[in-house]
Amino acid sequence: MKYNQLGKSRIQVSAIGFGCMSLGPDHAANATLLHRALDAGITLLDTADLYDKGENEVSVGKALRGRRQEVILATKVGNQWRPDDSGWDWNPRKAYILQAVERSLRRLQTDYLDLYQLHGGTVEDPIDETIEAFELLKEQGKIRAYGISSIRPNVIREYVRKSGIASVMMQYSLLDRRPEESSLALLHEHQISVLARGSYAQGLLAGKPAKPYLNYPAAEVQRAAEAVRQVAEQAGSAAEVAVGFVLAKPVVASAVLGIRTEEQLRAALQAAEAGALATEQLQTLRHALPPNQYEQHR
């Protein structure tokens, strides 16, 4: 397993991260899967207080009893459940973050988080106040680093300019190259890492039948999948190639993959052990279809 520094922090994360959102309600089964991932060298575990109304954090916390020091534990904040459970509202206020972190710490059965991430954000947010909350939590030793989970270039630019974020989690794949428009270069310049999600593009790059995806019609999705299969004839499985495309960007510290089954864990570990794609292979992938660009969230 390869490990990469997370931004300017002292944190090292595994090149493949375990996306815990996919975990089911069986705590014992989740613990077995997470332990096998840890045994194989996956150290980055990513969850959020939003997932299953906090029960995802509870399950991860149960699994980590006795193994907390082996893990880079990341969770997220900003989506506040309504008292009647009818949904959630966006709340990036300092007071809420300082309350929410205590609940996450209890559910995860830990006294600190390695990475605390704002789970979204807009340029209309009280960004200075949000940053104050994260910086205070760092001073208190409750978090080691903080970041944001966002695809919005304007939001990313504001946090790069104003804060000490270590990372940005964003969707990135051969079928979603919008981060290449501006965000990847900006983050690389400022030594802020990317945690990439959606590397398989809902499985469309790993064997699922083609269908429209973002602004790509099914025919173009099919063309991208065929390019992946072409490269996979030389470089392993389609899943390995899809992940290899993402990890080819130096700014990407980890590809966070949703894992729920043993089969998915095996595929993730195979991707972790795969060699880097050659320049010619990356060119084949990039030439398969024109990159998409942001049409909203400017």
Rank of each mutant, 00 (worst) to 15 (best):
I156G: 00
A196T: 03
E280W: 13
E226T: 14
Y213I: 08
R82C: 11
L277T: 12
L44G: 04
D84C: 11
I127F: 08
R223E: 13
L277D: 12
S173I: 03
K2W: 05
P212K: 11
Q264K: 06
V77P: 02
R67G: 03
E273R: 14
L38C: 10
I259N: 00
H190Q: 11
D52R: 00
P212L: 09
Y172R: 03
G24T: 10
L186W: 12
A100D: 11
V256P: 07
A274E: 04
I97Y: 01
L175E: 05
H190V: 08
G7N: 11
Q293N: 12
E124K: 12
Q117A: 04
S199V: 04
K208L: 14
Q283D: 15
Y200K: 06
Q222E: 15
S167G: 02
L64A: 01
A28K: 14
Q12F: 08
L186C: 04
G198P: 02
A15G: 12
A95G: 08
H35M: 01
G19L: 05
K249S: 10
S59Q: 01
L184V: 08
S193F: 01
L184T: 06
A15R: 13
W90Q: 11
S9N: 11
P212R: 13
P291F: 14
Q80R: 15
G41Q: 01
I72F: 03
Q230I: 08
L33N: 00
T43I: 11
S86I: 06
R144P: 02
I131M: 07
E280G: 13
S104C: 07
Y116S: 07
E158F: 00
A248L: 06
E70Y: 02
M169R: 08
H119L: 10
E180V: 01
H297Q: 14
A219C: 05
S193K: 03
Y200H: 14
G87W: 05
H119S: 09
D46M: 04
L34M: 15
E129F: 03
Y159L: 01
G244R: 05
N4L: 09
N292Y: 09
L204K: 04
R229T: 11
V194H: 03
T43P: 02
P83E: 10
P25N: 11
D49N: 14
E263R: 12
L108H: 04
S173D: 10
L257E: 07
T43N: 13
G61W: 00
L282T: 08
L205F: 08
R266K: 14
L184F: 14
A274W: 06
W81R: 10
